[in-house]
Design a protein around this nucleic acid. Sequence first.
DNA 1: AGCCAGGCAGAGA
DNA 2: TCTCTGCATGGC
Length: 298
Amino acid sequence: MMVPAPVFRGLFPVRDYDLDATLDSGQAFRWVRSGGGWSGVLGRRAVRLWHRGDALEAEVWEEPGDWRWLREYLRVDEDLDDVLAAFPDDPPLREAVGACRGLRLLRQDPWECLASFILSSTKQIVQIRQVIALLCERYGDLVPGWAAGGVRAFPHADRLAGLSEAELRACRMGFRARYLGEAARRVAGGELDLGGLHALPLEVARAALEELPGVGRKIADCVLLFAYGHASVFPVDVWVQRALEELYFPRRRLAPARLRAFAETYFGPRGGYAQQYLFHYMRGRAGRVALGGVTVAE
DNA sequence: AGCCAGGCAGAGA
DNA sequence: TCTCTGCATGGC
C-alpha cells in the first residue's frame, strides 16, 4: 500500500517549547505519537510535528500558505518569559513550572474544543481520546495525510447534528450523547454563533456557552481558555481542585466556588497558564507515584 | 474487583 | 448557597 509522502515542510524557531508536554497535557485529544514526533489534524489539514533542537518542524500534505494557521494553533510567537513573569512567585508554582517548563497553551478550533470537552465530563483522558477517535473515524471527512486512504478530520457540527442519539451513543460516549447532539444542532442551526463569541466580553461568552445543556462552568472555561485565548480563565477540575487544596489550603475544605474565586484573583492575568502547569504537574506526579510505588519503601 | 475519571443537572435543605 | 445523587463507560 502506498503511503503518500508529505510534500510541504515548515520550520519554526522556538525557545522554551516542550512539544511533548503541550500535546499530551489534556487540552487537545487527537495528537498521537509517531516517528519520534506527533501526528494530528487541524481543521482539514493533516500535520506531523517534531521538536528539532531550537525549532519545531512541521510536515503537511497540502499547500500550507503562510503557515499562520499553524503558528497560531501552536502559539509559537508567545513569549514564555512574559507568561511566567505574570505568575505569583510561590513554591508550589515554582515546583510545577520546574517540572515541565516549556508547556504551552494551544489555540484550538472552538467547535472541536467545545465538543471535546462536552465529552470529557467524568472521563479519563485516555477514554476521551478513544471516544473522539471513534467519532472522527465514523463521521469525520477524509483529508490527505499519512495514510493511503486519507485521515479523518474532526466532524463538523452539521454532520453531528443529523445523527440520532443512538448513533452518538454507539461511539461509547454514554449520557454525553444528548449533550453533544444538542450542541451540534444549536451550532449548526446558528442558534449559537461560535465565531461571534470572539468579539464578546468574557462573561457574556461564558454565559452563552453555559446555555448549552451539559456545559457548566468548568467546560465553558476550558473552551474560553483553550479556544478563545482568555488567558486569565482558570478551569477547576478534580485535579486542579486537589492541587489547590493540597498546595494552598492544606487540611481545609473549600467549596468549589470559593476555590475558583481565590484562583482567579491570586493567579493573575495569565492564570489559565498557571492552571495548566498545576494540572500537568499533578497528573505527572500521580503517574510517578503509581509507577514508583514499590521503590518508595526506603 | 472496585474505585474513579479535565462535570453537570436536578432536587432538597 | 451548599450538598447529594444519577448518569455510561472502561482504565487501572
